[in-house]
Design a protein around this nucleic acid. Structure first.
Lengths: 115, 115
DNA sequence: GCATATATATATCATATGCCATATATGACA
DNA sequence: TGTCATATATGGCATATGATATATATATGC
């Protein structure tokens, strides 16, 4: 191991590399879900509160089937929750990491970002 | 367009939906790059300053060829820059959006995140 | 030429995406 | 009740994109 320029950094990290990687994979998984314009916009929209699928369609301009599939995925990943009210299904965020992350994104990218 | 619950939101957004989508795609592209444990760790490591590929190998535990490929990708995307010094190649972040984003991730996920 | 450090190529495989069709659920109304 | 319209969900299929493993290539210093 010839290159130890940042040995302290490595050492002050979560005990071992496996642990670090495990954590990185979790965060990366979340980012992966957001790494698609439609899902990112969905997440962004929902930070403002509950919205129906129809609302989200207006907001994102996405095709209905895509929207539904993306919401399904986000549901399975525990990011959003659905609630049916008559003909509409309303979605809301249930992972506050996600809320905070989207807020951070808006912060970082400002008007050029997601908001 | 029956569902206008959040018409104000839509309207206070970047002029039109195309514009909004375009912005979302840019951010999504950045997130996509970070949505992989190795690249996320690379970005995280580099927020602490320049590191050689060897350093990054120690830090992330990733295989050399993977590391090189990921760095190549990040280079092409304008996220990092390389500088050769004798046998080593040192990388550093050159996109401050990335720095801010990683900082936000650390903030959001704390010790459970990337740091 | 040899060792070390880094980069790239190739093959294979899995997954995501888009497009389109269709299915289900709810409500309205004859 | 039966049918119709609306809202949402899901499935098939072609293609694109990304991951992984492995091999090989380039650059530097001795």
């Amino acid at each position: 191991m010839p290159y130890m320029t940042s040995i302290e950094n490595v050492m002050t990290r979560p005990t071992d590399i496996n642990e670090l990687n495990h954590r990185a994979e979790e965060v990366a998984a979340l980012l992966k879900t957001l790494s698609h314009a439609n899902r990112l916009l969905i997440a962004c929209a929902l930070t403002e509160g509950e919205m129906s699928v129809g609302d989200l369609a207006s907001y994102t301009g996405a095709e209905q089937s895509h929207l539904s599939r993306d919401l399904s995925r986000m549901r399975h990943e525990g990011l959003v929750k659905a609630r049916r009210q008559s003909k509409n299904v309303f979605y809301r965020l249930i992972d506050n990491r996600l809320e905070r992350l989207v807020a951070a994104l808006c912060d970082t990218f400002g008007a050029a970002g997601v908001k």
